[in-house]
Design a protein around this nucleic acid. Structure first.
Lengths: 384, 384
DNA sequence: TTGTCTTAGTTTCCAAAGGAAAGGTAAGGT
DNA sequence: ACCTTACCTTTCCTTTGGAAACTAAGACAA
């Protein structure tokens, strides 16, 4: 049995359990608007097939009436592999239905040739299966491959990937043949947003944005429960918003881009200029800033201001409930934080300042987890 | 009979006819995914109650098979009043189901007191009924009142209107009592976006933005068929995006706002400074610019650049299929156009430049038409 | 003229889905 | 022991829209 065979209410119940954890049938009914009878009817086959299970009683004191029975998703019912592809390496996770990582792995790529990468993905997936203790006979429910650039997840093709120099590669199909499991592909930031929407700081919110700050600066937007893709595949490009106060020229050729002052590369460059040390690394820049070097601190301050302006743009335009700030650079986050918040507050218009800013670390395997979340989503939220 | 009594498929059929004009039953089935049988079943009661009607044959040459019968919406089946409230006056229209204006009217307000304004709205609605030739016994299907500021259309309250200095005014209920017809209220720009979504340049698009340039600069965003409202009531505030190259201080206290250089007021101010004529009007500025005055032309160029940057922000963030530029200033649009387009193209990232820019005049009654569209939407797209 | 082909539209029948409401169940309270 | 309360299950029924057979209306050819 697959979830897709089940009536719409089954998906609703399952999704509610995924997002809110163990609930009683009555509570599910209240949250979804279904009648108790409908919940029971729909939950029975799900339980028979191992998708959900009863997990005991809620800890309620002095409640009158028949005690409730909690039911919860059986996360291990289906396993997924998530693989993030960069220009240099693959990062993979084996994860369950809630995108919880069970095993992780990395593989260096020695070529960006499509065939080589596809084989490497298939190899990594096999490795993850073994590392996760899966028997040969256990089937993987799905594979999610994520990659930065212009990805058409419906067609399953990478339209354009600048880092790999790929154009119109039907990657989903290629990986599916090589690895032998249903495969979906998605833009990396959108995949991360999907993971947050279902299992992270975006769960239950109608509208939120996820901003990643690192080598590049990007964002995923979830509006009304849907991650926006953009009519031409472009959306959430906060890195290239032309905000004020940025004089440096961006790699895209423009001045004013947030990325021109706040990407890891841009910060390193600016710190080198500020110190006159042409071999300064990001780590060293962070150390200098923490030690109080005023010129380097100014570089981080400028980056923080630019990011704050970008967040203000997002808040003024779409008015999210929350903006999740995520990035590799969270070790150095204290160097930006105040400037981000300050310039956000200064430039958010009216009630947009009420938008909640949340910081979230982004460990390397998190990117791959996004892939697993996208693959899992295919199972529990089919055909949107 | 109301449309809300009818099955979901009825709304689907009706909406398809509204957006695409007369279609045969078979064609409706193809577009909506319904079976021909379902279309017939659902169309019969709609026709019996006068919501739709057969309008003849399509002009097909040499087609084989039984000729099709076109059906279309009977726009006059329901009439709506739309009223836009500003600090100085009311603008009203009487419109049919397709938001086509049948009569228009304006009333000056001599007070911004809530009670006075509500009575004035009721009076204007009555006037429109008469002007549109409605009998006393004919019922208005709905009233839509639009107003700039923070409007909660679900609650029916104006949370905050800067121009009227209103806070938490339950306007929908007040107008409903005074005018005796079901009333909805909505933010003015969002209402305009609804009108474009159903009956204008946004019909059939999954994602588009409508930008209005005038006394203020705002935008409505329609994403996946829904106009976004923002979690805190703020969305589409393109006028206060902190874009680069803007030095002037905005009324909101910040520098960098688009509105600080491109609103009608800001342009007039800058033109006065440029010419040294402290009493210059907008019309005179336009004339001077058309005559070739370099300083004044530079003011318009700067405004155009800022608007273009704002459009680039919208395109980079949400990736709409189309951006509709609308405003009172379309008479002077030629003074901006090239600069808007140029700075948009320069700063739109990647495929976002493929976004279609469309210019649309915004006659004064268009604002009120938005209200009628919102009221009509309540009838044919209930309970979203 | 008449039969055939093609597409449009209608009708009948049926399966799926979920609501209504009655009934069964498990606890605490009296 | 019995009542109350809230949870859960079951039965029955309505609504909805699909499947498929059937009718309708025109073009075309024999």
């Amino acid at each position: 049995m697959t979830l897709a065979d089940q009536p719409p209410a089954a998906a609703l119940v399952f999704q509610t359990l995924l997002q809110h954890g163990p609930l009683s049938r009555a509570e599910i009914g209240r949250r979804t608007g279904l009648t108790p009878g409908a919940v029971t009817k729909v939950a029975t086959p799900l339980m028979a097939d191992g998708w959900i299970t009863e997990v005991g009683r809620p800890a309620t004191e002095g409640a009158s009436g028949r005690p409730a029975t909690l039911i919860a998703v059986r996360a291990e019912r289906a396993l997924f592999a998530g693989v993030k592809v960069t220009g240099e390496e693959l990062i993979g996770v084996l994860a369950d239905l809630t995108a919880r990582p069970l095993a992780t792995g990395r593989v260096l790529l020695d070529s960006r040739d499509v065939g080589t990468v596809v084989l490497a993905i298939a190899g990594l997936v096999d490795e993850l299966r073994t590392a996760g203790g899966m028997a040969q006979s256990d089937a993987l429910h799905g594979i999610g491959v994520t990659i930065s650039g212009d990805v058409d997840s419906r067609l399953g093709t990478v339209q354009y990937s600048p880092f790999l120099d790929w154009r119109r590669v039907p990657l989903a199909q290629l990986v599916e043949s090589a690895a032998g499991a249903p495969t979906v592909i998605e833009n990396d930031v959108r995949a991360l947003t999907v993971a947050e929407q279902w299992f992270g700081a975006g769960a239950g919110l109608s509208t939120f944005a996820l901003v990643t700050v690192g080598a590049g600066i990007g964002a995923g937007l979830s509006i009304g429960g849907r991650v926006v893709s953009g009519a031409h595949g472009v959306a959430g490009e906060v890195g290239h918003l032309p905000v004020s106060g940025v004089e440096r020229v961006c790699t895209c050729g423009n001045t004013g881009c947030v990325e021109a002052v706040a990407s890891t590369h841009a910060i390193t460059e600016q710190a080198r200029q500020a110190t006159g040390n042409a071999r300064l690394t990001m780590d060293e820049a962070v150390r200098l800033a923490h030690a109080g070097d005023p010129a380097v601190r100014a570089v981080f301050a400028g980056a923080g201001r630019a990011v704050g302006l970008a967040l203000a743009c997002v808040a003024n335009l779409i008015g999210p409930e929350r903006i999740i700030i995520s990035g590799e650079g969270v070790a150095s986050y204290d160097l930006f934080a105040d400037h981000i918040r300050q310039s956000f507050v200064d430039h958010a218009f009216g009630a947009a300042v009420d938008c909640d800013l949340v910081v979230r670390p982004l460990p390397f395997e998190e990117w791959a987890r996004g892939g697993a979340a996208v693959a899992a989503q295919r199972v529990f939220a089919p055909a949107k």
